[in-house]
Design a binder for these strands. Structure first.
Lengths: 159, 159
DNA sequence: GTGCCCATGTAATCTGTTACATGATTAG
DNA sequence: CTAATCATGTAACAGATTACATGGGCAC
């Protein structure tokens, strides 16, 4: 998945790490202990090309090698995986919620709706900002959350 | 996440494993090297209660202890995590697709649409079967895939 | 009995996490 | 100069994967 970051140019490990840290993903911590070894592995595996840049710092910049670009391309075009359902923390819980006693269930669904609406507001604000990257993914995420919200509303109005 | 399986009754490690193997999740292999140690850990941590059942086999059945049920409850009611965006393989790629040359991009979006429609057909068939468990999650998954499909159609008709 | 499947594991390996360590540069 | 921060790591640990090992019951 580091391919994604490296897909955006020639950069130092530190920049890669910052990118992970700043991306509000929560599913990936971007910890030093993950990023640096991963880059070393990819370099050893021939997916990255290193180029010494003599700009004062001893920093080494990495970019995708031909093999790296091929691997990235294969990842992008992996239709099978792309259309899988992933590991959705909302969907994972969906059937469990139904087992709760009616009162708890009602309260929980309510809390979920509030949280989703709040999240949608935040994402909507983000969308306004001109400097935001990954705009398409953001639009999609908003739509997916709206779908979850509709599902919740349908679930709330039930036996 | 094993809480989910254990939430469905008193069972042997083997049954847990079969459940994982049969659930078309792909995000979790249910390998022996994961399930057995995990159960041992949870038992050691006091989340599981073991009961020897003398039904011939030496099988030990596990069920949730009081602490285990509390942990499961906390997981179910984790609104924050539930409303996070998870690790969606489709959304992850969404912005990368836009970087492809127009012809490749068009072909890929087409392939994705076909795949999604096929997946939707499969899930629709599943929904017909009366013995299917996790029905709510299935309905939700279908809706989410439809949302992705709508997004794709909007993306296909673009500059 | 022999072979096969059921059920339970262990070993080696890979990768991610947290927490700590280190040298280089910049602010005061 | 000293302290903070930048940039790069390492160490210990947790958990997942594959592949292999083991032992009991059943079919033939």
């Amino acid at each position: 998945m580091l391919s994604v970051i490296n897909g955006l140019g020639s950069c130092t490990p530190y920049q890669v790490r910052q990118n992970f840290l700043s991306s509000r993903s929560r599913e990936w911590s971007g910890s030093a202990g993950a990023v640096y070894p991963a880059i070393r592995r990819m370099h050893a595996g021939g997916l990255l090309r290193a180029q010494k840049t003599e700009d004062g710092r001893r920093s080494v910049r990495f970019s995708l090698s031909a093999a790296g670009r091929r691997a990235f391309d294969a990842w992008i075009k992996d239709v099978e995986r792309a259309c899988g359902s992933g590991l959705d923390p909302f969907r994972c819980r969906a059937d469990q919620w139904d087992l709760l006693p009616a009162i708890e269930r009602r309260a929980l669904l309510q809390a979920l709706r509030r949280k989703l609406e709040q999240r949608l507001a935040t994402l909507g604000d983000l969308l306004e900002r001109p400097d935001i990257e990954e705009r398409r993914a953001l639009v999609l995420e908003i739509e997916l959350h709206k779908t979850r919200l509709r599902w919740l509303e349908r679930e709330s109005a039930r036996p």
